[in-house]
């Protein structure tokens, strides 16, 4: 059964980063997002995604190491959000 949080995250990623030629369901759960040749996301994209995640889920991502770990894949983002107390997951 698919995890609704994963689909919500993929939809957010596509909308935030304006990945016009990517459908949310095309993003694999465990594929690296940043630096991947398929998605071509760079550090500005990562920052934009962090801001969108903070707004959407009411969390705070404190530093770049935390963000690198959290943004490794859709799965790690979901795990990160679930681990944050008070997040709107």
């Amino acid at each position: 059964m698919s995890d609704p949080l994963l689909l919500r995250l993929k939809t957010l990623i596509v909308a935030t980063l304006k990945l016009d030629d990517v459908r949310p369901e095309d993003i694999p759960d465990d594929e690296p997002l940043i630096g991947s040749p398929r998605f071509g996301l760079d550090s500005i994209d990562a920052l934009e995604l962090v801001l969108a995640l903070e707004k959407e889920f009411g969390i705070k991502i404190g530093n770049s190491e935390e963000s690198r770990n959290a943004l490794a894949s859709v799965q790690t983002i979901a795990a990160y959000i679930r681990s944050r107390p008070g997040s709107k997951a």
């Binding site: 550090s43 990562a46 920052l47 530093n63 770049s64 963000s67």
Partner: peptide, 9 residues
């Protein structure tokens, strides 16, 4: 350089 954007944020 990896820290730059978060420092600015």
């Amino acid at each position: 350089p990896r820290e730059m954007l978060f420092a600015l944020k």
